[in-house]
Amino acid sequence: MSDTPTARMADDLVSSSVAPQTQEIIHINDLSLYYGAARALVDISLKIRENVVTAFIGPSGCGKSTLLRCLNRMNDLIDNVRIDGSCEIGGHNIYGSEVDVIELRKRVGMVFQKSNPFPKSIYENIAFALRLHGMTKKSDLDATVERSLRQAALWEEVKDRLHSSGLGLSGGQQQRLCIARAVAIQPEILLMDEPASALDPLATAKIEELVLDLKKDYTIVIVTHNMQQAARVSDYTAFFYLGKLVEFNTTRKVFTNPSHKQTEDYVTGRFG
């Protein structure tokens, strides 16, 4: 298998050699998305498994972030967006007329490219959503805040200043705070939109560690433009180009033995 230089390089990179065959939880069928008249996603069909990390890769503007935002309907916030096809999560079409978007977003959490903590204290950042969803007891809140911060590997760093502003943290800490905030309400699925793109290598490494750690409990879909990152953290990889899904397979397969020339060119860094 490892006779080409490309494959050898990828071999070193890919962490898990066996991709877990868990249940498929997200079914995307022939999904197309239009911004006004422009078609940003073209007939995407994709199945994403539970409790694994799936990476979306591709050059800028290929639609990977757009697709990610389809999964918790964040695209609803943009004017003039139209979506064809279906996206089923847990057997329900999330674009069905009966769907409660709020309930959907509770179950499909999201971490954004630019860290966006609320201008509140660290504690309040996490307690915000908990309170919205009906948790009022102080002891419950305290416990959940601590658990979430521990999950996001931030507890040790901030436990002494829980009530100081979340904006006072460093970039990497802010992003982990956002992850803690997202996992606090225990979503089933966690969407991450280039969570480490604005961070330095050390902070990036921490986030990646965190992702590998979190996949025990969550289904994670991560968008990244960093191929090494995709190779390091993900079990499955989808490669997009110009709004189309070019290739979707186990990360190992995509990086070592891609079936499309385009994919190979991209993962070896010939373009992108």
Partner: peptide, 17 residues
């Protein structure tokens, strides 16, 4: 996470506005 919730399924989803 997941174990108990999975059995509940995604029923809460279907309510709309």
């Amino acid at each position: 996470p997941n174990t108990a919730r999975r059995t509940e399924g995604w029923m809460g989803l279907k309510r709309g506005h």
